[in-house]
Amino acid sequence: MKTDIILCGVGGQGIISISAVLGIAALEENMHIKQSEIHGMSQRGGSVQSHVRISSNPVASDLIPLANAGLILSVEPMEALRYLPWLSPGGWIVSNNQPFLNIPDYPPVESLMQEYKSRKNAVLINADEIASRCGSAKASNMVMLGAASRFIHLKPESLMHGLEKLFAQKGSSVIDLNLKAFDAGRQASVAL
């Protein structure tokens, strides 16, 4: 059993937290894991990615080979498309549909949506709106993790437990908000 995930978005969007929850959950289920992250050179505002490999067998390479990721989990719609060369044939894209506009030449959103319409295995949700409804737009990363959870070979309970552990020091209201966001994301994804 193996899940290779490309996790992507824009620096500052909370990808490290998604990665951390996946790590805790994988450890809890006694799975092998490698997570390769990009740090440094003020990635804030730049495109960022993380390779997450979870498997019942030992993981060799820290990087996912091209065309081997079963899932692209993105918190930004253009960023998801940037990593398509890593997606396996028939692999899934689960992405937030809200663009992060910080460059002058960001493409028209309709042209991005056109790309998604031409693909079969894509789940696009408005994570910002769902997160706001749960209490804070900042939890959109956990909405996305919830939405992607049905494509990850880890129990949702393990992920939710991982989330609780990650936010443990921030108090119960932050934990509840993020749990709610996770659950709402999962529901939204299943409903599509």
């Binding site: 824009v10 505002g45 730049g46 495109s47 091209l66 065309a67 253009m78 960023e79 498309l81 940037r82 398509l84 060369p85 997606l87 396996s88 044939p89 692999g91 910080n102 460059i103 030449d105 960001y106 493409p107 042209s111 991005l112 790309e115």
Partner: peptide
């Protein structure tokens, strides 16, 4: 590669 980067994607 199974899929290529669509031309609509620009560097960030």
């Amino acid at each position: 590669e199974a899929y290529h980067i669509p031309s609509v994607v620009v560097p960030r």
